[in-house]
Computed example of a mutant assay.
Amino acid sequence: MSSVHALWRTTTNLPVVGPVLGKRVFSLLFGQKAPYFATIRPRFTVLEPNRAELVIPLRRGVKNHIGTLHAIALCNGLEAAMGALAEVTIPADKRWIPKGMDVAYTAKASSDVTCVAETDPEQWTSDEPALDVRVRGTRTDGTVVIEGVIHLWVTPRKKD
């Protein structure tokens, strides 16, 4: 189990704080591990192998000139979801690095946005190093505001 997955399970299973507050604690700690992600103040809601979800709250610090979520804030959210998914999904004998991102902005992000990253289990067991993670962001009314693919390069870990 990766350190990210262990942190998720620990924080969301604390009997004193409960899963709701535990998810907030995880989100804060995840932002400390990768500080740039903290700029969007992600709130993770789901983290399991092959699926991660987080919410980017619409607030002044991530708005653009027309008052919607900035495009790069949306991409930051998608990448945070993808990174968390990769950490809890990848087999222990492999490592990953992002190679690129292809996204389309499909509507104005005029509310909080839920960012989702998804893969299929067989993608992680393939010998093919190229792995595509499907990503999308939706407004609170269900409208997709951004969708695309984040391309990963997955290779065997080097042996010491």
Rank of each mutant, 00 (worst) to 15 (best):
S2D: 03
S3K: 15
S3R: 15
S3V: 11
H5S: 14
L7H: 07
W8S: 00
T10R: 14
T10K: 13
T12V: 09
L14T: 15
K23W: 06
R24L: 10
V25M: 05
V25W: 03
V25I: 15
F26K: 02
L28A: 05
F30E: 06
F30A: 14
K33Q: 09
P35C: 10
Y36C: 14
F37K: 00
A38Y: 05
A38H: 05
T39I: 10
P42I: 09
R43F: 14
R43E: 10
F44Q: 07
T45K: 06
V46T: 04
R51Y: 06
A52M: 11
I56R: 08
L58C: 04
L58I: 10
R59A: 15
R59Y: 12
G61M: 10
V62S: 06
K63M: 15
H65Y: 12
H65I: 12
H65D: 13
T68K: 12
L69P: 01
L69E: 01
I72S: 14
N76A: 10
G77F: 01
E79T: 10
M82P: 11
M82F: 12
G83K: 02
G83M: 10
L85Q: 08
E87M: 00
V88L: 11
V88E: 08
V88G: 11
V88D: 09
I90T: 08
P91R: 12
P91Q: 09
A92G: 13
A92S: 14
D93P: 03
D93S: 12
K94L: 01
R95L: 07
W96D: 04
K99D: 00
K99E: 00
G100H: 13
G100F: 12
D102A: 06
D102H: 14
V103Y: 12
V103A: 14
V103P: 11
T106G: 01
T106I: 00
A107D: 07
A107S: 08
A107N: 09
K108V: 03
K108P: 06
A109H: 12
S110N: 15
D112A: 03
T114W: 01
C115S: 11
C115V: 03
V116F: 06
A117L: 09
A117W: 09
A117Y: 05
P121L: 05
P121V: 04
E122N: 11
Q123R: 07
Q123N: 02
Q123T: 04
W124T: 04
T125Y: 03
S126E: 01
S126D: 06
S126P: 00
D127E: 15
D127K: 15
E128A: 00
E128L: 02
A130M: 05
R134L: 14
R134A: 14
R134I: 13
R134N: 11
G137Y: 01
T138G: 05
T140E: 00
D141H: 01
G142L: 03
V144Q: 13
V149S: 07
I150K: 04
L152D: 05
W153P: 04
W153Y: 12
K158F: 07
K158Y: 07
K158C: 02
K159E: 08
